[in-house]
Design a protein around this nucleic acid. Structure first.
Lengths: 202, 202, 202, 202
DNA sequence: AATGAATGAGTATTCATTCAT
DNA sequence: CATGAATGAATACTCATTCAT
């Protein structure tokens, strides 16, 4: 038997819609995605979508926020609670996490922010607050802990945790633009970690 | 009566228009820029603009191509003709060049490609052919030459010249999104070169 | 278990809804009033409202009819049964009634008919049948009785009872548009009656 | 030969459009008139309409203002410059003018203001400033001049020039709603003037 | 009976593109 | 060559109405 056409599922709808929107935005970008397209993907009418999200922008924000939330929290917690040495943590859990980022929703969010960020400074700020600043703080902490413990020497790297992230960013952009041209992004990232550790080890 | 102003401009017009378009696209992005706005900035009527560029997309492509051409050629030539050691070249001319990139038109082009690249695979390919592949080849060449000369040891870096570019990409994106949050991008880039050289030196 | 509240209300519901609708229409006009708004004011769900009224138009008609019914009947009865002279009736009960009209629901109905009457000729006709024609007939009757009794002389006013109503109409429209600009509507109306009586007195 | 489809007539367009809009608004009211309908009536595309009027509301305001301008000015000037006695002026030019009002564009404007005035208090105020207050002042002046000259005695009418207008308002509304039911509006108006003059004559 | 989630036709507005002048 | 008036397809959003629960 077919499902009745109008299922009443108030609870699930918002997530279903933001997921559909995420897909659509990921494929076509925000501007090129028609609201109707999102509704269709979510198996829902345009009207219903507007019941949950006042405007297309509102939906966009919900999508971004939905992806961002709890994305880095696990990593940050791991940094703080791990019993591994800083080096082992960097070569282990951190490396693993970094390898997944370029193919993760975070990459999509970054693309959307690059494309549409101009008109949504609040979203950029939100992303900064919940992801970037926290993530960088955690990375700084990891390195500094290594310095304190005598694992590492004091270098500029402590204040430039972005160095750890740099190949991840490049990998993300590579995927966005040059998928067809080979690049071993995993090796790129692990080599960077190698280099950094070699550079800062005591 | 002659109209020298119009006459003289005939050949400069396309460039004037693409420059105006570049400015506008840089500020507002492709989608949000109205053709009329470009015409106004170029001091030209909409109709005339369409005389030179069949469509807005055509104009977009011309903008990208115009920016790209000869952007990296100088660097590539320098790599090939320099008499400096690879290390000195990296610490000198290469570093200088890299520092300028995040604030240069190249950054704008990359943003545009990230935003609109989906619908313009030919443009992405064009950019790849004329900039990325050439640039990467030059960097690879620089490293390999160092290896051949005994300056450097053989490492994964030879096949991953992207490592040199990674902090430049991060700096670019940082500027796009997080201008207000401090980051010493020059130091980021120079530290990366430091690290890489330390890592690969014989 | 019985649900006395719902049960008891079943018969009052339609009136509760039309009253809520009247309020809403009075404040915002027909077109600008959303059905949901009416339902909310009536403390009822949209669905239930549609159980009693097939369409928004149906509701509109019910509102108009509900207001109209028995509005003028009292006055008409009074005209017919009064033992006052025509002049005394005009200066007494009639004047009092007229003063109340501009602030009464009748004014709202007239505004609604002016705004929406085009598409509801049947409603206009209904209003004509039940209010206007009867009211005018009563006024004509009042004057003619005065003529018959020798109170008044025969004038054009007998066939133009609208003269009595004219200042009431003006007062109504004044309230609708120019509330902030003072006008002593009571004096306007009583002066008109003064004038008419002076004009037609034998 | 048919006219070319795209005539370029920058100058005339705005008026052509407001005239078409006036017609449409007069027939269907503001809310029920689609912008496309106005464009069609004006023989123009939707886009062009938006070139001259930013929004539908803007168009509405332009329509109202266009009708209002110079509508009463002629009458006011006549009141001030006439060499007739106040009574002769009232029975002559004033009466003639009043008879034309119920069928004139002013009646349409008043209907529109009654329907849409709520959301356009500025328009109502505009109408007040340019038509109502001026017109009433002129009428007051006319009466007061009569009093000064000994034509009239001092009565409440001097401060209630609205009494002169009242039957005009009634006639207007009558036309809007009850066209099919006979009413000799001319006689209504002239009788009112008769009555008023009889009432105030010295 | 009663709810309010779900539908979708209808409409104002924008903007790339054309074409009369 | 040059202009900018004119076009119309495309799209976000609203709201009366329906219908699963």
């Amino acid at each position: 038997m077919a499902q009745p056409r109008n299922q009443r599922r108030k609870e699930e709808r918002p997530q279903e819609i933001t997921e559909a929107a995420f897909q659509a935005f990921a494929e076509k970008g925000y501007a090129a995605t028609r609201v109707e397209e999102v509704a269709k993907r979510a198996g829902v009418s345009k009207g219903l979508l507007y019941l949950y999200f006042k405007t297309k922008e509102e939906l966009f924000k919900a999508v971004i926020r939905g992806v961002v939330i709890r994305r880095v929290d696990a990593l940050i917690a791991a940094v703080e609670t791990t019993e591994l040495s800083s080096e082992d943590f960097a070569r282990g859990p951190l490396l693993e996490f970094m390898k997944t980022v370029p193919g993760s929703p975070i990459a999509v969010v970054i693309r959307l922010l690059i494309s549409e960020g101009h008109r949504h400074p609040d979203l950029v700020e939100y992303y900064w607050d919940h992801v970037v600043s926290k993530g960088l703080a955690a990375l700084s902490g990891l390195i500094e802990r290594g310095v304190e413990r005598g694992e590492f020497r004091a270098t500029a790297v402590s204040e430039l945790p972005q160095l750890l992230i740099a190949p991840v960013m490049l990998a993300m952009i590579w995927r966005m633009l040059f998928v067809q041209h080979d690049l071993d992004t995993d090796k790129l990232i692990s080599t960077q970690i190698d280099m950094i550790l070699a550079y800062i080890k005591a």
